[in-house]
Design a protein around this nucleic acid. Structure first.
Length: 234
DNA sequence: GCGACAG
DNA sequence: ATCTTGTCGC
């Protein structure tokens, strides 16, 4: 990347930051829509590959029934990726494909779970929260590693399934470190929007099975995304 | 300049 | 995220 490209990228980042700040004022974590009743729960993930110097991505959305955990719908969308990965600005990179895939769903999810953060973000605008304003549904963020904010470290929860520790930054709870399985690295969950942290924790734990430390819908979307890529690349 | 850095 | 070999364990 040359200096001119670096310059235009930093201008883009400033615009991204402005958008995040604008949206973050509209977060409503006290809205109870999610805790009332969930039937359809969606998992979202994106995989990437490169072809002739062009970066491509595929977004998969897998919808399961909350009680039976049976897959009831799934869609995907494929497209060129134009925005680079910049920590803190993941939504601007992945959201176009996500929204494209969401449009194709025949069942309307009551909740979306994302691979990444939600409220647990420097401006409370991780991809899960950002996406909620376009999907108009409750969202949850599921991260497999900790995105450090203000140099605050997390407390490691006890080695027991369901144990968690709040992630507190400046007297505010941003999210939770959750042990989804004993003897397995914990995950980092946070509200996206239109849902509170208590409901978020309950839903995440409900959708964990023996196969994975992340919730079923996100895991299925991850598998799906790689299956589609393999079909395209080979 | 160096290290850190969701996916 | 992706690139990768072997390896440990159910």
């Amino acid at each position: 990347m040359n200096n001119e490209e670096k310059q235009s990228l930093s201008i883009e980042i400033e615009k991204f930051k402005t958008i995040q700040t604008f949206l973050s004022d509209k977060i409503s974590l006290k809205n109870g829509r999610a805790v009332e009743r969930i039937q359809f729960c969606a998992g979202v993930d994106v995989a990437y590959w490169e072809e002739a110097g062009v970066e491509w991505g595929v977004c998969s959305i897998v919808v399961i029934d909350y009680d039976t955990k049976v897959v009831v719908d799934k869609t995907h969308s494929i497209g060129k990726i134009t925005v680079p990965y910049i920590p803190g600005y993941l939504a601007f990179r992945e959201l176009p494909l996500v929204l494209d895939a969401a449009k194709k769903l025949s069942k309307t999810p009551d909740l979306y779970m994302f691979d990444g953060n939600g409220y647990l973000h420097p401006r409370h605008m991780g991809i899960a929260t950002h996406a909620s304003f376009f999907l108009n549904k409750p969202t949850i963020g599921i991260a497999k590693s900790y995105f450090k904010i203000d140099n605050v470290d997390v407390t490691i929860p006890k080695n027991k399934t369901g144990s968690y520790e709040d992630i507190v930054i400046g007297n505010e709870v941003y999210g939770r470190v959750l042990r989804s399985h004993q003897d397995v690295k914990p995950i980092f969950i946070s509200c996206g929007n239109y849902i509170n942290l208590q409901a978020t924790t309950k839903i995440v734990l409900h959708l964990i099975n023996e196969e994975s430390r992340i919730p079923i819908p996100v895991r299925l979307a991850d598998l799906e995304t790689k299956r589609i890529r393999r079909r395209l690349v080979e």
